[in-house]
């Protein structure tokens, strides 16, 4: 990439090209072509930044409008009444539901995804590993609305047995008590989200595990390690930060997932101790469900809740990226 440094470091941010460059590109047409092309490509990059900034600005603007009209407390009110005057709404329930469903999804998906990634890279018979990886890729390509439809019409009916059993044995905890309603609850949402983010986490983890240098695994083997001990000594420590960032990416997905939650959850505006009884809501689900009946004020309120979601996902994804970058530096040092 050295060649590009010579020509790109030179031009300062102003449109005026450096004198050296002017001399080098003596022929006018050449220089014009280069400048147009550089302008176009750099412009596209800048456009992306502008879009990001615009998202933040416009969402904040509309959100500010909405919050200024809010009769309740935007952060703590357990209500979403936007079609009355004055409107009363708050995001506490949505924040709670979003976090709870994502935690359930992560608790289920991360261990299974890591196991499947290990299955593909270290356990599966060689002839099986390729097709399995392919199937996981396909899982990732299924649109979320189809997951939502499947979740609502297939998964939900299958949950009743499990819910009854959980209630029998763990109902006393309160978290798993169930009053026998339709299992359109946070737990079902969490399970469906887990299925949806599984491929994301699996694919990233798989890549990391695949990069574990052969020599580290052989070192463990030569010490008389069993396969699991090789995984524990050489593979997991090497892949840990990769798995963490993969999980964060999955978490970002789970936080923002809309349709699968909207189809499965039977929402209300309250915080429930039980994960099995229907109720609660998430940011994205609430936007999708309330949108069609929302008045202009209502839409602004929904945008305000979207802004909170935006900030949360930004933080989660930013953290994931920073971990990935740290890992890149770290593994480069050891290469």
């Amino acid at each position: 990439m050295d060649i590009s440094t010579q020509t790109t470091d030179a031009p300062p941010p102003t449109p005026q090209p450096g004198i050296a460059e002017q001399k080098r590109n003596a022929r006018g047409a050449t220089r014009a072509g280069d400048r147009v092309f550089l302008g176009l490509s750099r412009g596209s990059g800048i456009l992306l930044l502008v879009i990001m900034a615009a998202i933040a600005v416009f969402l904040t603007y509309r959100a500010a409008l909405a919050i200024s009209r809010d009769h309740g407390n935007f952060l703590t009110t357990f209500e979403w009444n936007t079609n009355v005057i004055p409107p009363t709404f708050g995001v506490a329930v949505l924040a709670f539901g979003t976090i709870v469903s994502s935690i359930i999804a992560m608790a289920i998906a991360v261990p299974i995804a890591v196991a499947i990634a290990l299955f593909i890279t270290h356990y599966a018979p060689r002839r099986m590993a390729g097709p399995v990886a392919y199937v996981i890729d396909l899982l990732a390509a299924v649109p979320s609305i189809v997951y939502g439809l499947w979740g609502a019409l297939v998964l939900v009916p299958h949950m009743t047995g499990l819910f009854g059993w959980l209630d029998d044995f763990f109902g006393w905890t309160g978290i798993f008590s169930w009053d026998g309603g339709a299992p359109r609850s946070m737990l079902t949402v969490g399970i469906l989200l887990a299925i949806m983010i599984l491929p994301v986490i699996t694919n990233v983890s798989r890549e990391v595990f695949r990069q574990v240098p052969q020599m580290h695994e052989e070192a463990a083997l030569a010490l008389g390690a069993t396969r699991w001990e090789v995984v524990r000594m050489a593979v997991l420590p090497f892949g840990r930060s990769g798995v963490i960032s993969a999980s964060m990416l999955g978490l970002g997905r789970a936080l923002g997932e809309t349709m699968a939650v909207a189809t499965v959850l039977s929402p209300d505006f309250d915080i429930h101790a039980s994960l099995l009884n229907p109720g609660g809501g998430t940011f994205a689900q609430n936007i999708a469900s309330k949108f069609s009946e929302a008045t202009a004020d209502g839409r602004d309120a929904l945008i305000a809740s979207g802004l909170v979601l935006f900030v949360i996902t930004l933080l989660v994804n930013g953290a994931a990226r920073i971990i990935i970058q740290r890992r890149a530096e770290y593994s480069g040092a050891n290469a």
Binding site: A219, A220, A222, P237
Partner: peptide
């Protein structure tokens, strides 16, 4: 492999372990 140990062409200490843990790994 516990009876017959091996040293490889390129030095391959476990990168995530300390010197002590590397020796103690086996």
């Amino acid at each position: 492999r516990r009876e017959v140990g091996m040293v490889f062409q390129r030095p391959n200490p476990f990168p995530t372990m300390s010197i002590f843990d590397n020796v103690a790994a086996g």
